[in-house]
Amino acid sequence: MNLDLDPDDEPRLRAALARAVDGYVPPPAPVDRVLAAGRARKARRRRAAVLAAAACVLAVAGLTVPLAGRGGDGPARPLPSPAVPTPEHVRPPAERPVTVSAGHGALDGTTWSVTVEYYPQLPPSAAADFLSGASAAAGTSLICRRMFIGHVQIDHQAGLWAGCTEVDGARDPRDGGDEGLWGLHDKGTSGTRLFVADPGPGIASGTVTLDDGTALTGQTVTAPGTTYRCWVVAIPDGRTIVSVDQYDARHHLVSRETEWR
């Protein structure tokens, strides 16, 4: 087959796409199911907004009380100099990420690290990568698992927000249960690789057994104030995976997978 770029290509491709969907008849629209799930999601967002507002009120109250307590007859003390603003200081608290290190080390002569970042509000610069800007105003959250090998962020070609997933607040039950192999080459199938799991509740650790018998164990960490978890191990170049086991806090085996390589 040898097709040249010509004006005929477009109608031909359109016809081919029409043929591809021909015969696929979707089931009736699950309007009720979508509405029910949408309402539940909306209710969760409203609850989260109320909690965030309450936290702000408490924070302001906590600042006000000590300031009020300064009143008295003593000589006026000079106010402290304002701190030099930095981007983190300038950003409202809700836009600052909550971070936790899931693991780091050195392997194959290079360093690696994985950090979990939770953004309570979708950062404005990420809005274009996810829902439209309207969602940023509505407070959509973001969970990111930042993976580095040799100071190079995996998937950096996909932009600043590669490795991030939109979530609904700090306790979105949809996040969890995924695993992946990541690397800088061949989409995680060769070279030094990171096995990164965002396990569901109850998983305290994971062990990856390699073809040479080595057992690598990662402990589950949780981003503070959230239910977003992560455990990670680094796979040396040239090694393949025999099994991936996950354990609960009592070291009881919860799951075993043998399809990873």
Partner: peptide, 11 residues
């Protein structure tokens, strides 16, 4: 499509 519509609904 379902998960997309559920995400869109609150907005």
């Amino acid at each position: 499509v379902q998960s997309t519509l559920v995400k869109v609904f609150p907005h």
